[in-house]
Simulated scan of single mutants.
Amino acid sequence: MTLSTGMMPATIRPAATAVQTIGAALLDSFVATLRPLIARFSTSVSHVVVIAPDGLMLHSLRKDCLGPPLHLADDVRAPEAFHAGAVQLRLPPEVFLMRSLRLPDAGRSYLQPIIAHRLERLTPWRADHVLYAYSVVEGVSEDGTIGVDLLATSVDLVAPFLARLAGAGLTATALGSAAEPLDAPLRFDLYKGRTQAADGRLRARIGRGFAILLGGLATTCLFSAIVAASATSDAEDVQQRLSALRTKLALRGGSGTSRERALIEGKRVDTAAIVLIDKLSHALPDDTVLRELDIEPTRIRLVGRSVDAPALIARLEVDAGLKNPRFAAPVIRDADKRDAFDLVAIRGDVPDAAR
């Protein structure tokens, strides 16, 4: 996937270029990580080419099963069957330089930059002319170091062999030593991590997959936004209908002041008790505790304790609207200097005809 920045405004072109660069780097890294997994589980045939004194020896390799060798003279094109699939080029062992290193185990995650920094001291070639691969030996020694085997060569030494391979119409995707078993995966692959010709196709496929995935996610988000907007519109429509219905009910109920409506609500059976309890909570002082509260259709009974029980009579008449409040039993003052009372009264929120 390539983004064209030619038609973009100059203000956002640097940001778009940075996003494109980062995206391409991430895609390349993903392809490099995915390539070995594809090769491991692939059922396609790969090929092993060994350099011979008088030409090339070609082998087909399928699931670690090595086919019979096919001798190919120099500058003779390989059969078409060898042009499909990965190609391992195995060079003579004398082309390579082998080194065994001891490095701190704490730097295991940074072996690549550590070895790259030491290449000119470990090999007789310039660092930018070195092809190398390394393998970590299992186990950690008592001094906290690990063994690392390094296999290296020079691009100048490899170039003639690559030219002979190119003369056969083949391109190496892996480079190693012929000293390793031909039917086993390379322990030292000097081309590991390099961009290969097949990576372009794999990169394009992954890019298309990501584009389809992002397109699907964008479509899903757009559909979700449309559904949410439709639900919001429906909710607003329902709310408008409810408001219109409330208005009609209010008009049908007749006009009147808010005080008149409050009085009417207080006379209704389903709200009268709630209104009465609310009045009692305001009438009773904080030093009064109720143990019983019996609300009957026409009367009410309160049993509890208070610092000054006689003072409750006036408060219940004025603040709670009760009529004829009186004590049903003598007030008893306990050791805590609190009055235990049993008080009854007639409800003031019911019509006189109901009493």
Rank of each mutant, 00 (worst) to 15 (best):
108 R>T: 08
89 L>E: 02
23 G>V: 02
255 S>I: 09
21 T>G: 06
276 L>E: 00
306 S>F: 04
3 L>E: 12
261 R>V: 07
277 I>Q: 10
332 I>P: 01
22 I>W: 08
296 E>A: 14
73 A>P: 00
54 D>A: 14
208 R>E: 13
67 G>Q: 08
355 R>F: 05
138 E>Q: 09
36 P>C: 07
151 L>T: 01
147 G>A: 05
7 M>T: 11
211 A>D: 13
299 R>G: 11
329 A>T: 00
160 P>F: 10
47 H>T: 06
56 L>T: 01
21 T>P: 01
228 A>V: 14
226 I>E: 05
321 G>C: 10
241 R>Q: 12
315 R>S: 10
66 L>H: 04
169 G>D: 04
45 V>H: 06
30 F>C: 07
63 K>H: 11
290 L>I: 08
268 R>Q: 14
355 R>P: 02
301 R>M: 11
133 A>N: 06
284 L>W: 10
259 R>W: 15
76 V>S: 10
9 P>S: 08
37 L>S: 14
349 D>F: 00
292 E>A: 06
79 P>S: 04
236 E>M: 07
28 D>E: 08
302 L>R: 06
200 G>M: 01
156 D>P: 00
259 R>M: 14
93 P>D: 14
72 L>W: 04
39 A>N: 11
47 H>K: 09
175 L>K: 03
188 F>A: 06
227 V>A: 12
300 I>T: 03
303 V>H: 01
146 I>P: 01
299 R>D: 09
252 R>V: 07
269 V>P: 04
204 A>W: 00
350 V>E: 06
170 L>P: 02
47 H>Q: 09
346 I>K: 07
232 T>D: 15
108 R>Q: 13
2 T>S: 06
133 A>F: 02
104 P>A: 14
209 G>D: 10
268 R>S: 15
130 V>W: 01
